[in-house]
Nucleic acid binder design. Structure first.
Length: 851
RNA sequence: GCUCGGGUGGCGGAACUGGCAGACGCGCCAGACUUAGGAUCUGGUUCCGUAAGGAGUAAGGGUUCGACUCCCUUCCCGAGCACCA
């Protein structure tokens, strides 16, 4: 099949143009201050989510977003923008390290090999990246600045008074280490013995490691944390001004998980210890019939009565051995143990039992709750199981079955009786505050970011330990390079692999290096900044470059103008990036408050079987094979023609053939085969004026393609170009001016063919100077679109009965008269009584008749 | 369970602000050219019906002169979150 003759000679001209673009650095974009920079032009920063260069190479899902952004980049260049369109590599990560463990090859070696392969594959597709800006997160020059940014975070704190990150020097407290945005804490983590590392929650699936499927257990370990929770409110508020899909904003909102409620202090009967609980329903306080502490709550050991000690200890042990997933399964039956302690409810002095149960989580609120079984599903289930009392304190507006958790009217609640829920909340919160028994508060589900990994292939922390305390290394020591290691294998203990590099570990006679490395997110948190100024040796991004490419942040949040990538990064990557960006902005290093103004998610491309592509299913489509067969332009065009960018859709080789045929028709508009089977300029191309209908289609195409590019509706833009091509194909003589315009429109989509035909036409006709992609984007002439006569629909009771042609500006009255004069249509109305006539000029006439 | 998306021909998908449902492409059918066609070109192609005509955008109801589009109910598919008090 591949030996079959191609319908147009893309195997020759596609590599030719790619070579020429590379040789002439056609897509190099100068920075402010550099030769060739035109300050008068507006900027457009269009960004792809950079790939992890895996050993598998590209599959057809990668280039979907890349093609979309490439078309936009090319389009904006033609519209007079300075376009920043870069690419790079997110090259740290577990797979490279595991491969290294298996083969003994250094991950840097395999990474370099994979990068080369990815780059070659991308170049075959004809993307207009400015490769002079390529970044690689594992490059020491890049790692230097990742570490530098970490130090900015380490050396700052969140000042609640200003609601901003500030240098740690502005903190007046005793222990700066307790407020740093990067801090060390003992945390329960996902430990995978087999992989010898902690894993992020999202790397754990069904209690097993996503990579390899090894068991994962919870164990407390000393870890580096980043204080992202301090920014919860700003991360939430900032979303409003971003042009992101509402669904993604919602995901982030849910992840941040803001809730309003109150802290309420209960006291232990007798000894008087304070149990502070968090509740979103302080109005139900009178219905609290017991309390529950998380098993890990610090007061548990202290309050447990001797007769219950064994049961409590056994329960705590059992909970600790459970995986996080087992514990958090909401559908399982409730478990818990009575501590034999009692607490006093501050509003009515009721004496209620204190239990421990694993349905109360230690990391949220205060790790303790008041249980209101009448109005909370979980408390209800627990109370039923352990036969605890249930007291109704909220009357539903309408009678309901089972546990009522909605809003209603307070009952059995003393001073609150008769109040609707919202008022009851306010009243009781104020009542508690007056007496020093509670206060209103806001809580977030968001947790601080676990930032350390026990891996080799990541950025070392620029931190050393001395006398049990951590401190930053000098900036002049950056980058802190990874030591050469012959053996990357896990140590089999919690000790990171870097511990094996004895010389490296020993920083000074009294100090040792931090042995953990940063997670893969670190490099991807700020790569979009480095692209702006990739060679800057003095700063992570130069001020002029930042101000130009990101904007001043005054009109809009600014940053990257368009960011395209998959939904898998909807929460973590995008949230982490926003967090780092905010800190750097607060500290005065960046002009804009947000990194990404507009975000678009491309949908997943499924295999030809409609299933998700995977090696095990054997349905992975490799772009190289498609390009061998149909060429890069057809590949690009099909990726965009499949359907809406954001939608999930299956791959179809027949579909590729369809756009391939379209491109072949475009080719034959200009070229024809001679007797010897060689392609030559067609005689049908002539310097004649386009016909009115050709002109109309051409300008309709300019209009549609332009507006569709604005909304990323590539599929309909392409279909309009097909319409235009079909119109020109059917003509005996093809006006060269129309072909010229079509090629300009086509050039962002199918750049090789546009360029090739442009140069072929240029050999004979004037007005083909330079290159197709160097042309100014055309504008349509609206007056050419309007026709003098339009077809309007004739309806009876909203049903189409006939059609007629009238002058385009016919009035309502004229339309009605014309309809009545329309013989066939008038006959259908017959003698029926016309109740009403609706006439919409240019569209239709509708007769509403009786009977 | 909760929260978002989404259900349109044989298939991928079009349809502006409520105004001719099915653009464009695939597939299929017929024809032309041809030694040949899995190349190309031309025409057709939602369904039922020979036709006139009728039905039709997951199902049912509503608003409207008019609904794929707006409202209500139900079903199905996809994604995310999942004991967050």
């Amino acid at each position: 099949m591949s030996s079959q003759r191609k319908q147009y000679p893309f195997p020759e001209f596609e590599p030719k143009w790619q070579q020429q673009w590379a040789d002439t650095q056609a897509y190099r974009t100068p920075n402010p201050g550099e030769a060739g920079f035109d300050a008068a032009k507006p900027k457009y920063y269009v960004l792809d989510m950079f790939p992890y260069p895996s050993g598998e190479g590209l599959h057809v899902g990668h280039p979907e977003g890349y093609t979309a952004t490439d078309i936009l980049a090319r389009w904006h260049r033609m519209r007079g923008y300075n376009v920043l369109h870069p690419m790079g590599w997110d090259a740290f990560g577990l797979p490279a390290e595991q491969y290294a463990v298996k083969t003994g090859q250094h991950p840097a070696v395999t990474t370099a090999k994979n990068v080369e392969r990815f780059k070659k594959q991308l170049d075959r597709i004809g993307f207009s990246y400015d490769w002079s800006r390529e970044v690689n997160t594992t490059d020491p020059d890049y790692v230097r600045w990742t570490q530098w940014i970490f130090l900015q975070i380490y050396n700052s704190w969140f000042n609640p008074a200003t609601n901003r990150a500030e240098p740690i020097s502005t903190y007046n407290g005793k222990d700066p280490d307790s407020v740093r945005l990067a801090y060390v804490a003992e945390m329960p983590v996902n430990w995978c013995q087999e992989l010898g590392t902690v894993l992020a929650n999202e790397e754990v699936v069904d209690g097993k490691s996503e990579v390899g499927g090894f068991p994962v257990e919870r164990r407390p370990m000393r870890q580096w944390m980043l204080r992202i929770t301090a920014f919860a409110e700003r991360l939430l508020d900032g979303l409003d001004a971003l042009d992101w899909p509402e669904s993604i904003k919602l995901l982030q909102k849910n992840w941040i998980g803001r809730s309003e409620g109150a802290f309420v202090d209960f006291t232990r009967e007798g000894s008087g210890e304070k149990f502070t609980v968090y509740t979103t329903r302080p109005d139900t306080l009178f219905g609290a019939t017991y309390m529950v502490l998380a098993p890990e709550h610090p007061l548990v050991a202290q309050i447990t009565a001797p007769e219950q000690r064994k049961a409590v200890d056994d329960y705590i042990k059992a909970v600790a051995s459970k995986s996080e997933r087992d514990r958090q399964d909401a559908s399982k039956e409730k478990t818990g143990v009575f501590t034999a302690a009692y607490a006093i409810n501050p509003v009515n002095d009721a004496r209620i039992p204190v239990w421990i149960a694993d349905y109360v989580l230690t990391g949220y609120g205060t790790g303790a709750i008041m249980a209101v079984p009448a109005h909370d599903d979980r408390d209800h289930a627990f109370a039923e199981k352990f036969s605890l009392p249930i007291i109704e304190v909220v009357r539903p507006p309408q009678p309901v079955e089972g546990c009522f958790t909605g809003e209603g009217t307070a009952v059995n609640s003393g001073i609150l009786d008769g109040l609707p829920t919202a008022e009851a909340k306010n009243k009781i919160t104020a009542w508690l505050a007056e007496r020093g028994l509670g206060r209103a508060t806001v809580q977030y589900k968001l947790r601080d970011w676990l930032f350390s990994r026990q891996r080799y292939w990541g950025e070392p922390f620029p931190v050393v330990w001395e006398n049990g305390r951590h401190r930053a290394v000098e900036e002049t020591e950056l980058p802190v390079r990874l030591p050469e290691l012959a053996d990357f294998k896990p140590t089999g203990t919690a000790e990171p692999p870097l511990s094996k590099a004895a010389d490296w570990v020993k920083y000074s006679p009294t100090a040792t290096r931090e042995l953990n490395t940063m997670p893969q997110w670190a490099g991807s948190c700020w790569y979009y900044l480095r692209y702006c100024d990739p060679k800057n040796a003095k700063r992570f991004i130069g001020e002029d470059a930042a101000r130009y490419w990101l904007g001043d942040g005054k009109q809009k949040p600014g940053g990257v103008d368009l960011y395209v990538g998959g939904t898998e990064h909807a929460v973590l990557h995008l949230l982490y990036s926003r967090f780092w960006h905010m800190v750097l902005h607060d500290l005065g290093h960046l002009p804009t408050p947000e990194p990404f103004q507009r975000l678009v998610n491309q949908g997943i491309i499924l295999g030809t079987d409609g299933q998700k592509m995977s090696k095990s299913r054997g349905n992975v489509v490799n772009p190289d094979e498609v390009i061998d067969e149909y060429g890069a332009d057809a590949f690009r065009l099909y990726e965009m023609f499949m359907g809406p960018l954001e939608q999930m859709k299956p791959w179809s080789m027949k579909g590729v053939e369809g756009v391939y045929r379209f491109l072949a028709r475009v080719w034959r508009l200009v070229m024809t085969e001679n007797q010897e089977g060689e392609w030559q300029l067609s005689d049908a191309v002539a310097e004649i004026d386009p016909s009115p209908s050709q002109l109309r289609v051409l300008h309709a195409t300019i209009k549609k393609v332009t507006s569709d590019l604005g909304t990323l509706s590539y599929n309909t833009a392409i279909s309009q170009m097909m319409v235009c091509t079909n119109e020109l194909t059917s003509a005996e003589k093809r006006p060269v001016s129309a072909l010229r315009t079509l090629l300009v429109l086509l050039s962002p989509f199918a750049p090789h063919m546009a360029e090739e035909l442009w140069s072929k036409l240029g050999a004979k006709f004037a007005d083909f100077e330079g290159s197709a992609h160097g042309q100014t984007w055309p504008t349509h002439n609206e007056s050419l679109l309007v026709e003098n006569e339009v077809e309007v629909v004739l309806q009876i009771n909203g049903k189409v009965r006939d059609k007629m042609v009238v002058a385009k500006d016919a009035s309502r009255e004229q339309l009605e008269a014309a309809a009545r004069a329309h013989e066939k249509f008038a006959a259908q109305i017959g003698g029926k009584e016309v109740v009403k006539v609706v006439a919409v000029p240019g569209k239709l006439v509708n007769f509403v008749v009786k009977g």
